[in-house]
């Protein structure tokens, strides 16, 4: 079902975990199947003085494709300027992985959403201008999140007994 690249990233994902005191943090949920992804950013500066993504980490609850695309997105985003990172889309992920089963495309969208949210969160916290496109995406994601969060509140409770 999956090609070698996807399986490699799944088997040994890059950059998983948490960043303490992250500069930006995004959490997104997948309304299709119930997957959840967290993405953390540490922002630094390059030689030109532009802000770049110095470090990035993820946590994912989801399928093979979700974990592999999370790993890829961290690879792609690392070292990029914020502007470049905003320009990444699901095709950047699919191109890197060479292919993804059609039914799993929505998992790669999730990885992009998580990155966008983390950047949004950073810009917002620091009272920066937020590009329109990013704002729009944020609004859509917020809506979807409410659906997911309700699902998961029930779940966390039920597994504690």
């Amino acid at each position: 079902m999956y090609n070698k690249k996807v399986l490699q990233h799944f088997k040994s994902p890059h950059n998983f975990g948490k960043i303490q005191n992250a500069d930006g943090q995004g959490q997104v949920g997948n309304v299709v199947c119930g997957d959840v992804m967290n993405l953390y950013l540490k922002i630094g500066k390059n030689k030109k003085g532009e802000e770049i993504i110095e470090d990035v980490k993820f946590e994912t609850y989801g399928c093979v494709a979700a974990i592999a695309t999370s790993s890829i997105i961290t690879d792609l985003a690392k070292g990029k300027t914020i502007k470049q990172a905003i320009g990444l889309n699901k095709d950047s992920i699919i191109d890197t992985l060479e292919e993804l089963p059609a039914i799993k495309i929505h998992c790669s969208v999730l990885a992009i959403d998580a990155l966008n949210e983390a950047i949004y969160n950073y810009l917002h916290k620091n009272k920066r201008d937020i590009p329109k496109e990013l704002q729009k995406r944020h609004q859509r994601i917020e809506k979807e999140k409410q659906i997911i969060e309700k699902k998961y509140a029930d779940w966390i409770n039920s597994s504690k007994d």
């Binding site: 999956y2 399986l7 799944f10 088997k11 997957d35 609850y61 989801g62 399928c63 093979v64 979700a66 974990i67 597994s159």
Partner: peptide, 15 residues
């Protein structure tokens, strides 16, 4: 199993 997803488990087992 709480907190994880089945396809990931099955694929890992396959490995």
């Amino acid at each position: 199993f709480a907190f994880i997803e089945g396809e990931s488990i099955v694929t890992s087992l396959d490995q």
